[in-house]
């Protein structure tokens, strides 16, 4: 593809070659479909109170107050257990500072 002016012939060759490379598209096997069923990817509505009082990580607490949280770049965050999964990437790692109402 050295030229920018595509002739009908060039297009036909590319389209024909691509189609030949693929053959016909297949149908999905039952096994593949079942595999797809196992992927969640989004929140699920439910009718339970899953987070009302639990104090474990990731849940909110009874007296959660947005004002108690202070988010700062992690350079100044040395709390035990703060995660730095992206260390060495180049950017500063964001972290969390302040009183943790979950603790």
């Amino acid at each position: 593809m050295a030229t920018k002016t595509l002739t009908a012939l060039t297009l036909a060759a590319a389209v024909g070659g691509a189609a030949a490379a693929l053959g016909t598209t297949g149908t999905v096997s039952a096994q593949d479909m079942v595999k797809c069923y196992g992927i969640a990817l989004a929140g699920q509505n439910d009718c339970a109170n899953a987070a009302g009082t639990h104090s474990c990580a990731g849940q909110s607490t009874v007296d959660f107050d947005g004002g108690e949280w202070k988010l700062v770049p992690a350079g100044s965050c040395n709390e035990p257990g703060s995660e730095e999964p992206f260390a060495g990437v180049g950017g500063t790692i964001p972290g969390l500072e302040g009183s943790d109402p979950n603790a």
């Binding site: 929140g43 987070a51 009302g52 959660f64």
Partner: peptide
């Protein structure tokens, strides 16, 4: 607070 935590916690989840 039970309701507030559930609203914020479930949507964050």
């Amino acid at each position: 607070g039970i309701y507030r935590n559930n609203v914020l916690g479930s949507l964050a989840g």
